[in-house]
């Protein structure tokens, strides 16, 4: 399916990626290619390696790549630091966004945005100009300005933390966004706000990977491809109806698929 002819070069190419932590293999040969404008969903049981996959793409120092490569915009990024990956346009939306007490959200967002702008040879923004920009982006996720004066994610509800992640995505304008269970812990209204934010930010030049357990996010954001992961491997890839089938049949169905292969 992914080998069909594309008009542009891929944003992300993951080729036979294996990785481990503390000598424990987690990923066992994952391959995935994302072209501009595509939305991919990765589904699978807890512990199958979905979140690890996202962290390895973002450069988490606790994991070691033992085989394969990650290419971003045609360049091998296996040895790039997390900040270099972010600056060049890779965004990871955390399943559990981290609280950073004492660091103002506004300053954190400004420093991050300027790091990306510097990479893009755009002028860095001072506090006043940044406030203008951030006000505009706050509207995308229906967040109140009061969030800016608080410490990063500290005291935020689950939904507020996820909206703060999407706000960061809106400010950083990544080429590819990997959103790790962005829908978990959200009520229906918050899910719609987050989904609508993601749709507004994504465009024909960007790629999105949604890591999720549930169909409900995929009802809001229709993926081009759905991948099922099990034991550190992608065991099945299909179009959006694969998610529906998975919802009906459960992961046991994919267990049968593993047995068959």
């Amino acid at each position: 399916m992914q080998s069909k002819m594309k008009e542009s070069d891929p944003i992300l190419e993951v080729d036979n990626l294996s990785a481990s932590t503390d000598n424990l293999p987690i990923l066992k040969g994952v391959s995935l290619t994302v072209y501009p404008g595509e939305i991919h969903a990765i589904m699978g049981r807890n512990g199958c390696g979905k979140s690890t996959f996202s962290k390895i793409i973002a450069g988490h120092p606790s994991y070691t790549i033992t085989n394969g490569e990650i290419k971003f915009l045609g360049e091998n990024i296996n040895s790039l630091e997390p900040e270099e990956r972010s600056q060049s346009g890779i965004f990871l939306g955390f399943q559990y966004p981290i609280e950073i007490p004492g660091v103002s959200n506004l300053e954190f967002l400004r420093v991050s945005t300027n790091a990306r702008r510097k990479f893009l040879n755009k002028e860095e923004l001072d506090t006043f100009d940044f406030e203008e920009l951030v006000k505009e982006k706050l509207e995308i996720v229906k967040m109140d300005q009061a969030f800016l004066s608080r410490s990063v994610n500290q005291g935020f509800s689950g939904g507020e933390k996820k909206r703060n992640e999407i706000l960061q995505m809106a400010l950083l304008e990544p080429k590819i966004a990997i959103l790790d269970e962005t829908d978990s812990g959200l009520d229906i209204d918050a899910l719609r706000i987050v989904a609508s934010g993601i749709k507004r930010i994504s465009n024909a030049q960007t790629g999105i990977i949604l890591i999720t357990h549930y169909q409900r996010l995929l009802d809001e954001i229709k993926p081009n491809y759905v991948h099922v992961m099990s034991d550190g491997q992608i065991i099945k890839t299909g179009e959006s109806d694969l998610a529906l089938e998975l919802e009906k049949k459960g992961y046991e169905w994919t267990d049968n698929f593993i047995k068959e292969t």
């Binding site: 450069g59 120092p61 900040e83 972010s86 950073i100 004492g102 420093v111 991050s112």
Partner: peptide, 25 residues
């Protein structure tokens, strides 16, 4: 380390992230 990684995934260098964490301390 998780705070540091979070900041680094937002383009902030390790040195800057450590400084931010210390100044918050």
């Amino acid at each position: 380390e998780e705070e540091l990684f979070y900041m680094r995934t937002r383009g902030i260098t390790l040195t800057e992230a450590s400084k931010l964490q210390l100044s918050s301390y």
